[in-house]
Amino acid sequence: MLTARDGDVRIRPVGRGDADLYLALRGDAATMRDLGGPQPPDRIRAGHAREVAETAAGRADIVVAEVATADGWVAAGNVSLVAHPPAGAEVGWLVLPEHRGRGVARSAVRLLLGLPGTAERWGVVEAQPSVGNTASNRLCAALGSTDRGEVDVEFAGQRFRCRRWELDLRAQVPQ
């Protein structure tokens, strides 16, 4: 997987050294509000290790979004692109609270979906943000995704009402 940059945001493959980012993201109540609340540290560490292995094996494209600061590049969140039948893949993202509202997720998602070979590999990409997650639903619309309506989704043993968005990467390049 390649790295990519768009102004003050860049992406790189997730690695073993990103465990603290995962703990900060998935252990934060505000970040995980629409995903059932913060996860316990052991579960976060196991999920991180699994995502590093899946990315290294080429079974998923999971990246860390970094932002440029006066002190250099700082991890701000992550974006995952994983197999999800019947669509080709599901895309999801999390951004640390201090970096929200600055376009980090939008830039990182666009960078990941625009990497060479992504459209051919994954084809149709789906996102399923909670119906109450206005920012994520706006991002899906801004990507040019098609709103397929509301669905019930199970995550972490809980059911959530989500909006299902679909984007055929073969038909368009995210802007």
Rank of each mutant, 00 (worst) to 15 (best):
M1F: 12
L2W: 10
A4E: 03
A4T: 07
A4Y: 10
G7V: 05
D8L: 05
R10M: 00
R10Q: 04
R12E: 09
R12C: 07
V14N: 01
G15N: 09
D18C: 03
D20G: 05
L21S: 09
Y22A: 14
L23P: 02
L23F: 04
L25K: 06
L25Y: 08
R26K: 07
R26S: 05
R26F: 15
A29F: 03
A29E: 14
M32H: 12
R33I: 03
G37F: 08
G37K: 06
G37C: 07
P38I: 08
Q39P: 00
Q39G: 08
Q39A: 14
P40Y: 04
P41Y: 02
D42E: 15
I44A: 07
I44P: 10
R45W: 09
G47F: 10
A53L: 07
E54M: 13
A57Q: 12
G58Y: 03
G58P: 04
A60S: 15
D61E: 14
I62H: 13
A65E: 08
A65P: 09
E66M: 05
V67T: 09
A70M: 01
D71E: 15
G72F: 06
G72A: 09
G72V: 08
V74Q: 14
V74R: 15
A75Q: 11
A75L: 01
A76D: 07
N78V: 00
N78L: 13
V79N: 05
V82P: 01
H84I: 00
H84W: 13
H84V: 00
G88Q: 04
A89E: 06
V91P: 03
G92I: 02
L94Y: 12
V95C: 07
H99P: 04
G103P: 07
V104H: 01
A105L: 01
S107V: 01
V109M: 04
L111V: 04
L112H: 09
L113F: 07
L113A: 05
E120Q: 11
R121I: 12
A127T: 12
Q128H: 12
N133L: 05
N133Y: 07
N137D: 10
C140F: 04
A141R: 14
L143I: 06
D147A: 03
G149S: 01
G149A: 01
E150V: 13
D152R: 12
V153H: 14
F155A: 11
F155E: 12
F155P: 00
R159Y: 05
E166Q: 14
E166H: 05
A171G: 08
